[in-house]
Design a protein around this nucleic acid. Structure first.
Length: 631
DNA sequence: GTCGTAGTTGAGGTG
DNA sequence: GCACCTCAACTACGA
């Protein structure tokens, strides 16, 4: 009997440059089943709106068409069951000899894959895996970095050099073997749907698991309706390898743009077209191979010669950062996505900390569940999430994020700094939850890593560099075109006031047909834009001082004082007033439902002056012991 | 161990 | 319009 191979597609929804698919074909299979399994973890536990699900289904449908072009008898066969329970049954029923898939170092993926590998061994099925999700194998990078997480781009590059060259892309296969028979003569194990953190998006019960081969019995790609989504996606960005490769060609046809690309010099306010490549969602779903992208960029840079940009700012540099976060996550494990237990993440007593409870998940937290230690901070958080902070540049970005599932990297910096160390002093894990929900390109490692970077809890520490919601936007877009696009209430406002509408006088506002009042959370009214939720200069000073104290105290997430709660005494002794748990009435909350009600006017007594000379008052710091950083 | 310097992407000013 | 400086000051890395 020849080889009968299951190729298990996961986050590698492509045919071009797939080392794992090549390994499967190298077995010269008699039968090859290209399959995708519905994973209840991703359906119920990972936050994701209709935009991201549409993108995933796009990628699957496109891949299925591409497979069919190579062999009309084949396609992407979608099986609606959790892989852990499904595989033992199909190994036997289909008489499988090999299981091949692309390795994945995400926290849940590791857990799932080790269960699948164990069941394969038990069934006598040989498992073959290859790495193609990053430039280098993340575990190998960690090994070459002395077993430690890669916490800087220098470390990543050094570890990469030790491994050696980045593999050249592998061409797409020219033909695929026929699939074998696919009897489903076994029962279906249906997963428990609770907790379903995507429930708010579903208006009808999801039918995802009602039939193992789908409603028509044809193993078809699911529809949004099957997932219970009745609302339509709002994003213009569509998934699939075909579009990804077209986009790649387009980007590299402009040689000057691609060869001289410098990320910090691209504008977060550019739209139609955006200033960056928009390839990140394709990378996330594996519709585009990072190595294919890398070698397009690298070959061009060498050809271009003088004037080409270099890492970390260049296009290849962007891919290096991605590898850095993947390898950091590979080394740190489940606690990489949080502060608690993470020895490389500073402890800062942010507002709205995550609830830690036995959840059955590796890290004992569920995205989105948090303590409301401060009702005011929760209102700020809700206004940030809804794009009604009263700071037009922040609101424009948050509204673009919600509608399109993508914003520019520097825009992410702006809103992340604003929510955490440069405004609200809300926990970065809250912001990461929101990005997980809205971003098409949400990558667990990169999301956690970037939030730690921006909140100055890991990777980056220059907390005194703070983004201004006024000045930062103006640097890129003097006249506020980006704001006018996303905050139509302000579209006719004079450019002198577009970043600070609260400073405009009545005549100016009347002329623009807008009133500045309220908190924006309640019923939307035409021609009304919310008042700013605080005095930014004042908040900036308070946050900076609090960051300084927290740095001086120097706790990390794995400190026993963080776990047992005695950290509080340290901060109280330091005179900290900006911290978790100081407000009375620790009302526990989970959702946006319990938004506050606080008058029509300004929330906290807005003063309309610009902050200058933000002097940080020095506290009595000397008596606090500084903890040595972990090695 | 000490010191100098670099670090993807701040703000605000000057020339 | 752009390059450069200062502000006040973080960590990591290599010599």
């Amino acid at each position: 009997m020849g080889n009968r191979v299951i190729y298990w597609f996961r986050t590698d929804l492509r045919l071009h440059d797939s080392p794992a698919l090549k390994a499967a074909l190298d077995l010269h299979p008699d039968a090859l089943w290209p399959i995708f399994t519905w994973d209840p973890h991703y359906v119920y536990r990972v936050k994701g709106g209709v935009n991201r699900w549409q993108y995933l289904l796009d990628c699957q449908a496109d891949l299925s068409r591409s497979i069919q072009k190579l062999n009309p008898k084949s396609k992407l066969f979608v099986l609606r069951e959790a892989p852990q329970t499904l595989f033992p049954k199909i190994f036997k029923a289909w008489n499988v000899t090999h299981l091949v898939f692309e390795k994945d170092t995400d926290v849940y993926a590791r857990e799932r894959d080790s269960a699948v590998v164990a069941s394969a061994e038990e069934a006598g099925v040989q498992v073959i895996t290859r790495y193609g999700r990053t430039l280098w194998d993340s575990d190998e990078l960690v090994a070459k970095n002395g077993g430690k997480p890669t916490m800087s781009i220098t470390q990543l590059q050094a570890a990469g050099r030790k491994i050696g060259g980045i593999p050249r892309p592998i061409p797409a296969p020219r033909h695929l073997p026929d699939p074998g028979e696919m009897p489903v003569s076994f029962g279906q194990d249906k997963p428990g749907a609770s907790p379903d953190i995507n429930a708010p998006y579903r208006s009808t019960p999801d039918e995802c698991y009602s039939h193992i081969a789908g409603p028509a019995g044809k193993f078809a790609v699911a529809s949004l309706e099957e997932l219970g989504f009745s609302v339509s996606a709002t994003t213009p960005h569509r998934g699939g390898e075909t579009i990804a490769l077209e986009r790649l060609q387009e980007i590299f046809s402009d040689e000057k743009y691609a060869a001289t690309f410098q990320k910090p010099k691209t504008s977060p306010a550019a739209f139609e077209p955006q200033s960056t490549t928009l390839l990140s969602p394709f990378l996330h779903f594996g519709a585009l191979s990072p190595r294919l992208f890398y070698w397009h960029a690298q070959d061009l840079v060498e050809k271009y010669g003088e004037g080409a940009s270099t890492p970390p700012e260049s296009l290849t540099g962007q891919l290096l950062f991605r590898d850095m976060y993947f390898a950091a996550q590979a080394a740190i494990g489940p606690s990489f996505a949080q502060t608690l237990g993470n020895g490389h993440c500073r402890f800062i007593p942010w507002h709205l900390p995550s609830k830690v409870e036995p959840t059955g998940l590796a890290n004992n937290t569920i995205a989105g569940r948090y303590h409301v230690d401060s009702p005011q901070a929760d209102r700020w958080f809700q206004r940030w999430k809804a794009g009604v902070t009263g700071f037009p540049f922040v609101d424009a970005l948050m509204r673009q994020l919600r509608a399109e599932g993508w914003i520019h990297h520097l825009g992410r910096h702006m809103v992340a700094c604003f929510l955490t160390r440069g405004g609200c002093y809300v926990h970065w894990e809250r912001g990461a939850d929101v990005f997980e929900e809205f971003l098409l390109d949400h990558e667990p490692a990169c999301n956690a890593g970037n939030w730690q970077w921006l909140s100055c809890t890991a990777f980056y520490s220059q907390y005194y560099r703070c983004y201004s919601p006024v000045a930062f936007g103006q640097k890129w877009d003097k006249t506020g075109e980006f704001i006018r696009r996303w905050v139509p209430e302000l579209k006719d406002l004079d450019e002198k006031f577009i970043y600070e509408p609260w400073t405009a006088n009545q005549a100016v506002l009347d002329k623009a047909g807008v009133r500045v009042e309220g908190d924006g959370l309640r019923e939307k009214r035409d021609g009304v834009y919310p008042s700013p939720m605080f005095d930014f200069g004042e908040r900036r000073r308070a946050c900076l001082a609090a960051m300084k104290r927290a740095y001086s105290i120097g706790l990390y997430g794995d400190d026993e004082r963080v776990e047992d709660g005695t950290w509080k005494e340290l901060f109280e002794r330091a005179g900290e007033t900006e911290m978790e748990g100081l407000d009375a009435g620790d009302a526990d909350g989970e959702h946006a439902d319990d938004v506050g009600d606080h008058g029509d006017g300004t929330e906290d007594g807005i003063r309309h002056k610009k902050a200058r000379n933000p002097v940080v008052k020095e506290g009595p710091m000397d008596k606090h012991v500084k903890k040595k950083r972990k090695t």
